[in-house]
């Protein structure tokens, strides 16, 4: 049960303001999700792949991490720390070795991608936005989530967005009713979710479909067939973002579009501070319909 926000910029000149705009949207959704908050930001692409990791003891865990990893890989590694999170950039071919190295050191991998960085923590959305300096982040698009936990624990790992493949992230408002069965099916396919969270099951489902050859639209359509319960999903990829609601569609969802951006919010008030919102096209996504924007 939650609040979702998403912002996809159509124009380059707004990129430096992405984090600022997204922060206002996220904080407005605090009432819908006071337990934890998270954001996925699609920022500048560098020379390698970005891996966002989290640690409850960042001071010790991140101390010398880049040097140690670089030594292990025999390749250049850069690291940017941000509170409990750190973003490591490694060459694409070193991803697998990096994952094993990081997990062996007890670090939690939040997400991997060429453009995507993920930051999530427990606490009020305002505090989470502040501790990560969300307002200063730039990028092409981003998705945020405020969580009111239903049946899984209020932990960092239980917070959204969930990323189960490179540059993919998923946030969810609602409650799935067949996620335990789906969890077993996905585990057999090698896409086992790491948490008890129903949203992670949906993320794994979409990743598995894409891995099997589906395009994103097909994978999102598949959720309508294979996932039961109530959901509004907002999905981010390297180049775009998509939205789908269940056929009953009683969880709130509203979208706004101008020449400058496409925005998603659980409630209209998330848009109140966006530039030009008074003249934007504002509508509610139809049930059982996939929407997708790509640059």
């Amino acid at each position: 049960m939650c609040g979702i926000v998403g912002l996809f910029l159509k124009k380059e000149d707004l990129r430096p303001r992405l984090g600022d705009m997204l922060a206002d949207m996220l904080i407005t959704m605090s009432d819908r999700g006071p337990d934890s908050a998270g954001i996925a930001i699609y920022g500048d692409q560098g020379d390698g792949h970005k891996i966002t990791v989290q640690s409850d003891t960042p001071d010790t865990a991140f101390d010398g991490l880049d040097t140690a990893l670089g030594d292990r890989l025999g390749a250049p590694v850069t690291m940017k720390t941000n509170d409990t999170h750190a973003v490591l950039t490694v060459p694409a071919e070193a991803l697998e070795a990096t994952g094993a190295f990081l997990e062996a050191r007890g670090l939690r991998i939040m997400g991997v991608g060429e453009a995507m960085e993920i930051y999530k923590e427990t606490g009020l959305p305002r505090d989470v936005a502040t501790r990560f300096g969300l307002r200063a982040m730039g990028g092409s698009h981003g998705i945020g989530h405020t969580r009111m936990a239903t049946e899984s624990a209020v932990t960092t790992l239980g917070a959204h967005p969930f990323s189960t493949d490179a540059d993919q992230c998923l946030v969810h408002n609602g409650s799935l009713s067949n996620h335990n069965t789906m969890r077993r099916v996905l585990a057999q396919k090698g896409f086992a979710p790491k948490t008890e969270n129903d949203t992670e099951v949906a993320a794994c489902y979409i990743s598995s479909r894409i891995a099997e050859g589906a395009n994103l639209g097909e994978a999102l359509s598949g959720t309508l067939e294979d996932l039961d319960g109530f959901f509004t999903f907002v999905m981010g990829t390297k180049t775009g973002f998509g939205v789908v609601r269940d056929p009953i569609a009683c969880k709130p969802a509203v979208m706004a579009e101008t020449d400058d951006y496409v925005a998603f919010g659980s409630e209209y008030r998330a848009f109140a501070g966006l530039p030009g919102i008074d003249s934007a096209r504002v509508w509610e996504p139809e049930p059982a319909t996939v929407y997708f924007w790509e640059r």
């Binding site: 049960m1 939650c2 609040g3 009432d31 819908r32 999700g33 009111m148 239903t150 408002n173 609602g174 409650s175 109530f230 009683c250 969880k251 709130p252 659980s266």
Partner: peptide, 9 residues
């Protein structure tokens, strides 16, 4: 309304 996030409102 549906769910606790709506119920709060």
């Amino acid at each position: 309304w549906t769910g606790p996030d709506d119920l709060e409102i």
